[in-house]
Design a protein around this nucleic acid. Structure first.
Length: 702
RNA sequence: GGCCACUUAGCUCAGUUGGCUAGAGCAUUCGGUUUACAUCCGAAAGGUCGGAGGUUCAAGUCCUCCAGUGGCCACCA
């Protein structure tokens, strides 16, 4: 055995050996108890980052339960990541001086497909370098035909059950990205803006009502002004009409309780087409809605002389003209929160658009019931409440996206009857009128609509025996940041389609931060490429550094220093093995009386302490306290076993006490098994060196 | 504004249903060693357990209040 562990020479060979011997290949007909994790499918549009390396927690569980005699199954996959990928792809197009408008839909789709396949292969190789014991023969991609079929079936069922509907509502629209989003994709930011006080004159009068607004450019879409019914200042104006500046349109003064008498002037302009609160007021008062901003962010024909102007340019002009006409009464600095596109950062426009919406409430209720009945355990426990809060806050979910990349929605419009129908397979004739005068919706699904079905979709796609044996899966392990996007939706869809929760446990890991506790981001320049770390210190060191000194679900403090000390630990493990190995090869021994050096006593103490420690380790592992289990393992292996016991036993070993050596070897094997989930390569390497049977550590049990 | 979590040694964390002088690793300082060891080993130092009050024979641990940190959500023209 070498003096040190040469990971660069052996890790790859070890992984290939594991794969060749099919240790990661799950058997759905096994007599063992199942243990299944579905890998959160990484986006197939970029290389892995440290966040992906956090899936090491899944590998720890998969390997641990495998050693415990379970039939472990870790299913790999990749996500087409609809809009995320689309965004990256459009940037690439832009670099080449092209845009999406230069291609036909089919061409675009094909181009993205090729782009994604390349990245997907790359990503899979990287997951292997991390040592992840994924069952590659069972990998799935969200755009695999069988997966798409299952997702389409879900949509059809939702449609038939009246849980999805086509509706024209205000949607979150990003005019730059050219698509609508769900409520979750909008991030609110504090914006320093202005509050403009504008005079709306009464009919045949120079006097009028002053409205306060942050968005003067929407005034063309005003259909009323509202005051509070109890507001004494304005009671007499209710029912009268005021005149919109520029276009001289008469709109009524109405009374509505949503108006806050204390805010601004107590008079609100009502623009149902561009504000969600106003939309509600419009519905209550049966007002028309007038869209004045189009999907390119420009004012349309309702804006009179300003039509065709982008709203950003129009606003100052409009304010100026109001001032000219002495209709601008006052301007006040005002800080408020404005929704922005989570991806490009543009201001999100609420625009009226016909889209597909899922009625969330009935689905969310069942998810809540399941969680309250503890059908799903969540680690750390504090996220249980957060998840329940989320389920309460979900409103109808807009799943239509105006992009090409993704699953085209299997909804068709009958032109003659003006009616929508849904069909899983492309229909040859209209299911409404029987003719062929129909078109498919050009929109695609929100990515989360398909990934929300991932646990049952993958297992169903693999076949009945997989679904029956492994569903519900054992653990869903993912970052806490996608709790509402993904976890909540998987629970809802899982219950809706299969009647059962999709997983029995949820383990949420934290964020990887740098040594100063800062989030890693490109702009801060503190991003670490996991592959570089592996090159430098080995995969085991990287893996261990993401677990060591980390509380359950806590953020990981990542530093070069920590990886280095984990590399040293790997070497320590190796060298204990080397020491034992050398003792076994020792041919000449002194003939010291073993009783003189207390070998028997020390080895007995060590055995006692080891079995006590193993119990402790098991408890921690079963309670999902992986960081702590590893911390204590580190301390025990290094500072108790190596520093203390082996030092005590040295004389006895040198004297030729074979029994002590055998007993020490057995204890070391136990330690290797406990270490293996965390540091699979070095433990396997040393195991193969020491174990004469030449069998993998994966063939043993813990 | 609402909700949640956290606050124990310089750093990262343990501390089980309240019970003997509060623990570990890393970092620090000192000493030793060339050993199985990309060095390693030993020792030391380091905490009024965020603050205040309460329950109790006994509180880092339970309760109340306060402060600070972090997170999530909402939001009003």
């Amino acid at each position: 055995m070498d003096k040190k562990y040469r990971y660069k020479d052996v890790d790859k060979k070890i992984y290939e050996m594991w794969e060749k011997k099919k240790y990661f290949k799950a058997n759905p007909n096994s007599k063992k108890r199942p243990f299944c994790i579905i890998l959160p499918p990484p986006n197939a549009n970029a290389n892995l980052h440290l966040g992906h390396a956090m899936y090491v927690y899944e590998d720890i569980m998969i390997r641990f339960y495998k050693l415990r005699g379970f039939e472990s199954f870790w299913l790999p996959g990749a996500d087409h990541a609809g809009f995320e990928t689309w965004y990256v792809f459009e940037k690439h197009l832009k670099k080449k001086g092209k845009s999406r408008f230069d291609y036909k839909r089919e061409e675009l789709f094909k181009m993205v497909w090729e782009f994604v396949m390349q990245n997907k292969n790359n990503m899979e190789e990287q997951l292997k370098r991390l040592g992840f014991s994924l069952d590659w023969e069972r990998k799935k991609f969200t755009l695999d035909e069988d997966i798409v079929q299952i997702v389409y079936k879900t949509f059809k069922k939702l449609f038939d059950d009246n849980l999805v509907y086509r509706g024209k509502k205000l949607v979150n629209y990003c005019v730059k990205c050219g698509t609508s989003f769900s409520d979750l994709e909008v991030t609110y930011k504090d914006v320093k803006g202005k509050l403009w006080f504008i005079l709306y004159k009464l009919e045949n009068s120079d006097k009028g009502l002053v409205v306060a607004t942050t968005r003067p450019e929407t005034l063309f879409g005003d259909v009323a002004v509202a005051v509070h019914p109890d507001d004494k200042r304005y009671k007499k104006f209710i029912g009268k009409k005021v005149i919109l500046p520029f276009i001289n349109k008469k709109i009524p003064v109405i009374a509505d309780e949503m108006v806050d008498m204390k805010f601004g002037t107590g008079v609100v302009k009502i623009t149902p087409a561009h504000d969600s609160n106003d939309w509600l007021v419009g519905e209550r008062h049966n007002l028309p809605f007038v869209q004045v901003i189009d999907f390119n962010g420009k004012l349309n024909e309702h804006a009179g002389e300003f039509s065709g102007l982008h709203i950003k340019k129009a606003r100052p002009l409009i304010v100026q003209r109001l001032e000219d006409q002495k209709l601008l009464v006052k301007v006040k600095d005002y800080e408020h929160r404005v929704g922005h596109c989570y991806k490009c950062g543009s201001v999100i426009e609420p625009l009226p658009k016909e889209q597909w919406f899922i009625k969330i409430k009935p689905l969310a209720q069942k998810a809540k019931d399941a969680i309250l009945k503890d059908e799903i355990e969540i680690y750390p426990h504090r996220f249980k409440k957060i998840l329940l809060d989320w389920l309460d806050k979900f409103y109808d979910w807009n799943i239509s996206r105006q992009i090409v990349w993704g699953m085209q929605i299997p909804a068709y419009f009958c032109k003659s009857q003006k009616k929508w129908f849904v069909s899983v397979n492309k229909p040859s004739k209209c299911l409404v009128c029987g003719k062929d005068d129909f078109v498919q919706d050009t929109d695609t699904f929100d990515t989360w609509f398909s990934s929300g079905q991932w646990p049952f979709a993958t297992l169903q796609a693999l076949g009945k025996e997989f679904f029956n044996f492994f569903y519900p899966t054992s653990v869903m392990e993912t970052g806490y940041d996608i709790l509402p996007w993904w976890v909540a939706r998987m629970i809802m869809f899982g219950i809706y389609i299969t009647g059962s929760v999709p997983f029995k446990n949820v383990y949420l890991h934290g964020l990887v931060r740098d040594s100063k506790g800062q989030k890693m981001s490109k702009s801060k320049g503190n991003v670490v490429n996991p592959m570089d770390v592996i090159d430098k210190y080995g995969a085991d060191a990287l893996r261990a550094s993401l677990v060591f000194e980390t509380a359950q679900g806590g953020d990981v403090v990542f530093s070069d220093n920590k990886v280095r000390s984990m590399r040293n630990f790997a070497n320590k493990i190796w060298n204990i093995g080397r020491f034992i190995y050398l003792q076994h090869t020792l041919t000449e021994r002194d003939s010291l009386d073993k009783d003189v050096v207390n070998g028997d006593k020390h080895i007995k103490d060590l055995e006692k302490e080891s079995s006590k420690f193993k119990k402790r380790y098991m408890q921690l592992m079963e309670k999902y306290k992986f960081g702590q289990a590893f911390d204590e393992l580190y301390e025990f292996v290094w500072h108790r076993v190596a520093d203390y016991y082996i030092e005590q036993l040295k004389e006895s070993l040198r004297s030729g006490n074979i029994e002590v050596l055998e007993r020490l070897t057995n204890i070391y094997f136990e330690l290797l098994k406990m270490l293996h989930p965390f540091m699979p390569f070095v433990t396997e390497a040393v195991w193969m060196n020491l174990n004469k049977s030449n069998k993998s550590i994966l063939e043993t049990t813990l």
